[in-house]
């Protein structure tokens, strides 16, 4: 069936099976491959995107459920070649290594800050409980999110 959404400010549309997961709709139909798939149990958060500004795991949403929604993916974060402050903080704090969890981590972290603009270290760690990274040991990810919040790192 026809799915019409707004992705990163642009109207997009494709005809898909009802069972199509949002993450596959974004990746395979719209070619937005920045959003990754790291598991099949809603555990890892690699597929995190924003719907209406809130983080969601796009592997656990049907594309048809997202019809009419305003979706932001990692491709929509930087503007005119300038990194989003969260992306910049990840770079400056070495908060990524292989980069596979990174898009989901950035989307989860920006959603976290929109709900809690001045988190403590513990808030950041709890807030990222649904996003797994195998490379960084999280130390520098937490540092990056705190830096992006303007707090102590």
């Amino acid at each position: 069936m026809q799915v019409e959404v707004t992705v990163n400010g642009q109207a997009k549309s494709a005809d898909v099976e009802p069972r199509t997961l949002l993450v596959h709709f974004l990746r395979d139909e719209l070619g937005l491959t920045g959003t990754n798939v790291g598991c099949d149990t809603s555990s890892c958060g690699a597929c995190t995107v924003h719907i209406g500004g809130e983080s969601v795991k796009s592997c656990t949403v049907l594309a048809v459920q997202a019809r009419g929604e305003d979706i932001t993916t990692i491709e929509g974060m930087a503007s005119d070649g300038v990194l989003h402050p969260m992306q910049q903080a990840f770079m400056e704090c070495h908060g990524l290594q292989c980069g596979y969890c990174t898009p989901g981590m950035v989307m989860a972290a920006t959603s976290l800050l929109s709900e809690n603009p001045s988190p403590t270290e513990a808030d950041v760690r709890e807030g990222l409980e649904g996003n797994l990274c195998r490379c960084t040991g999280y130390h520098n990810i937490v540092k990056a999110v705190l830096q992006a919040s303007g707090g102590q790192s």
């Binding site: 958060g45 719907i51 983080s55 656990t60 976290l112 649904g130």
Partner: peptide
């Protein structure tokens, strides 16, 4: 419940 992204949905 779950994690923040789960709780949004």
């Amino acid at each position: 419940v779950g994690d923040p992204s789960v709780r949004h949905r």
